[in-house]
Design a protein around this nucleic acid. Structure first.
Length: 733
DNA sequence: ATAGGGTTAG
């Protein structure tokens, strides 16, 4: 135990320096700077305690700085050193705040700052503020930031360019663009970092155009940009997918002799890849003498996002170290390009190989793949993994879990996740509203929207799409109108085309065609294909031939390859018995080479996803499935089921052939398969890529009664819960 | 008496 006594006893061992004037004069202090590992530093620490040198605040500050800032430092050890120092000086306090601010627990930086103000004799100085403001930026606290900004002004440090630059960074990281800009304007002598802070922050916050504008102004005011500036500018180009300007920036860098370090090369590489020029990316990649893990991952991601999966895979296989980001790039490449099965295969490979540990991003991508596929067993497995690993649910992960459970058909489980978390951002709320909406719980979705406001969470444009979608699925016309009308005046969110589409859908489903048409004519933006699609969909439900033809032709003007439009129109003709028109349409489709998108149903049994196409024999158990289907149809007919032939797109003359074609619809195969191979109380969950047809809908209702089985069917637009002969959509879809 | 702000991939 070191005591005051030891210190005094040891003092005579430093006869030449009663006060230390220069680090080089003192052999111990100069040794601190020569340490190359923690053990050496600990030996000096021990010696300083023995000799008492440690109790000189200046000497202690030197030791502490080395323990906190040197390349071999450890925060744990640094903190122990700090706690031993009886009277840390201002430099020591500042250094501790600094290391916390850029470490894993920035909040500690703020708390240390408060302790310093409270218990030390020092006032924060011009060095303190940049560190503590950095901590506030890291925890994204605009309140703490504003309080610090106030202290800066009170301390008459408002003119310090270092502090101002930190404040710009802080305000931008909290999304307060106006304040950031105000601070920027107040700086008398802006330096290159002032510009960089603003440009980089704007680029990161999705204001790419503003960032580029600022870069032009910087040029005009002849402030010389540096490499960091160019990284920010390239990042803005990347966000805008502006290859042309990106190329110009690369040549600007060359022309102006800006030093190209690894970070800047990586930013250029990312710009080329994300803006779609794999050739440029590949050329740069091959030319780069120094590559780090970011270089490899950027290249991999570029290939994966542009669908060059083999090339992406090759990069993964040859890169020096496969960290989790590399795997994530491949998984999300598949998942975002609508290849969820491939995404899951990579995830499984990752788990088996144990090369890297899945992180939140891996899980978010994989859950999204599960949601696309309706693979709930696998999704549940991931949820279990999250719990097993003690991973805290952040808002991203919460949103993904809610989305996965909703889209896999278990909205109650989604609600359970929703209620289990403490933190809910606008995405979490919106996902839950969407989940309720797609399951037809329109009222519950709207109630949740009210609760969201009670929680003072500001809705965004997506929230409103989901709320309007809820109104549509539940047939809530009046409510839908109210929400749409409130968007701009009450919430400051101008309605976009998807909101108008939802409103047309709401009016159309309710059969209020005149109103719907008038609404389209009066809407303040040009109606898109989705608006006409919504009208056409409503015409199908109500069998409105005249309007269907009009909507279809408008839709085809905007999107000539939309085969769904033909299917819907054909359905309207069939529903109203206009078989010659059906025939004409068929012929037209044949001539123009338009094919109906193939219907496909998937069902997951024990973690394996089985896929069925209409009339398909690919399944190894195909024979059993078809005989089960025969049995089902026979049993249904015995209680009076008559196949609804109007739901055929093909024009088949003979009656039994028509019936046969209907029987082969993929969702019926999946139902038969589910009845055969899924244990009784568990519901049969099916995902269909297109809208479910009326005949399959009736069959599912009857099966749910006669076989006493719950069937949950997700089609392209919503969920159908069949039970006891009824469907949750109340035959309104 | 020591020092500070802005940087790329998922």
């Amino acid at each position: 135990m070191e005591t005051l006594g030891t210190r005094l006893l040891s003092l005579p061992r430093h006869p030449t320096s009663k006060t230390v004037n220069n680090d080089h004069d003192d052999p111990v202090l100069s040794r601190i700077n020569q340490c190359t590992n923690l053990n050496q530093l600990k030996q000096i620490h021990a010696q300083m305690l023995r000799t008492g040198l440690f109790f000189n605040p200046y000497s202690a500050s030197k030791l502490f700085a080395a323990s906190a800032l040197s390349p071999f430092s450890s925060l744990d050890y640094a903190r122990k050193v700090f706690d031993q120092i009886p009277k840390p000086n201002l430099y020591t306090w500042n250094t501790l705040i600094r290391v916390y601010a850029s470490g894993p627990e920035p909040l500690q930086g703020i708390l240390i700052f408060l302790r310093m103000v409270d218990e030390s004799p020092y006032y924060p100085n011009k060095f303190t503020f940049p560190f503590v403001i950095k901590a506030a930026a890291e925890i994204v606290s605009v309140c703490v930031g504003q309080a610090l900004h106030g202290m800066v002004i009170k301390a008459s440090l408002g003119a310090d360019v270092f502090i101002s630059n930190s404040l710009i960074h802080l305000y931008l990281s909290c999304g307060d663009l106006d304040s950031a800009y105000r601070v920027f304007m107040m700086i008398g002598e802006k330096d290159v970092v002032s510009w960089n802070s603003l440009i980089t922050g704007l680029a990161q916050k999705g204001c790419a155009e503003k960032a580029l504008e600022l870069f032009r102004r910087m040029d005009a005011e002849s402030v010389k940009p540096n490499d960091v500036t160019m990284v920010g500018v390239l990042s803005a180009c990347t966000k805008k997918l502006d290859l042309e300007f990106g190329r110009w920036v690369c040549s600007y860098i060359e022309r102006n002799g800006i030093s190209v370090n690894l970070t800047l090369s990586n930013a250029m590489l990312d710009m080329y890849a994300k803006c779609g020029s794999l050739e440029d990316a590949k050329r740069l990649f091959d030319m780069m003498e120094e590559k780090d893990i970011v270089t490899w991952t950027t290249m991999l991601d570029g290939y994966a996002k542009l669908g060059e999966y083999e090339a992406a895979r090759r990069v993964l296989d040859i890169m020096p170290r496969q960290d989790i980001a590399a795997w994530n790039a491949l998984i999300s490449g598949y998942e975002q390009n609508g290849k969820p099965k491939e995404a899951l295969a990579i995830y499984h490979e990752l788990k088996l190989s144990k090369i890297a540990k899945p992180d939140e991003i891996t899980l978010v991508s994989t859950l999204s793949a599960c949601a696309q596929l309706g693979a709930m067993d696998i999704g549940r497995g991931i949820h279990a993994y999250v719990k097993e690993q003690g991973i805290q649910l952040n808002c991203h992960l919460t949103t993904s879990l809610i989305d996965m459970y909703s889209k896999c058909g278990d909205v109650n489980k989604a609600l359970e996740v929703f209620y289990s978390v403490e933190r809910r951002d606008v995405f979490v709320w919106s996902a839950m509203i969407a989940g309720l909406a797609m399951h037809g719980h329109g009222r519950a979705a709207i109630d949740l929207f009210s609760r969201m406001q009670e929680a003072t969470m500001k809705p965004n444009s997506v929230t409103f799409t989901n709320v309007l979608c809820a109104c549509s699925h539940a047939g809530l016309v009046k409510e839908g109108k109210t929400f749409l009308n409130q968007m701009e005046p009450v919430y400051g969110i101008p309605p976009e085309v998807q909101h108008y589409s939802c409103m047309v859908d709401i009016l159309g489903r309710a059969g209020r065609f005149e109103e719907a048409v008038e609404f389209i004519e009066k809407m303040p933006i040009v109606p898109s294909d989705s608006v006409w699609g919504a009208l056409l969909g409503a015409c199908q439900i109500h069998g409105n031939v005249e309007l269907a033809e009009k909507a279809c032709s408008r839709l085809l003007e905007l999107d000539p390859g939309n085969h769904g439009a033909y299917v819907l129109l054909s359905n309207v003709y069939a529903k109203t018995g206009k078989w010659d028109s059906v025939s004409r349409l068929r012929k037209h489709m044949r001539v123009t080479g338009l094919k109906k998108e193939q219907g496909c149903s998937t069902i997951e049994v024990n973690g394996v996803v089985h896929e069925f196409l209409a009339g398909d024999n690919r399944h190894p158990l195909s024979k059993e499935i078809y005989s089960k289907l025969d049995e089902i149809v026979a049993r249904l007919k015995s209680v009076g089921y008559v196949p609804k032939k109007s739901h055929l797109l093909q024009l088949i003359e003979e009656d039994d052939l028509q019936e046969h074609a209907l029987k082969l619809h993929s969702e019926k195969l999946a139902i038969a398969f589910g009845l055969l191979y899924m244990e009784a109380p568990q519901p049969i969950r099916i995902i269909k890529n297109l809208r479910v047809c009326g005949d399959c809908h009736s069959v599912a209702k009857l099966v749910s009664r006669l076989y006493n089985r719950e069937i949950i069917l997700r089609d392209r637009y919503r969920f159908h819960h069949f039970g006891g002969g009824h469907c949750s959509c109340k035959d309104y879809w």
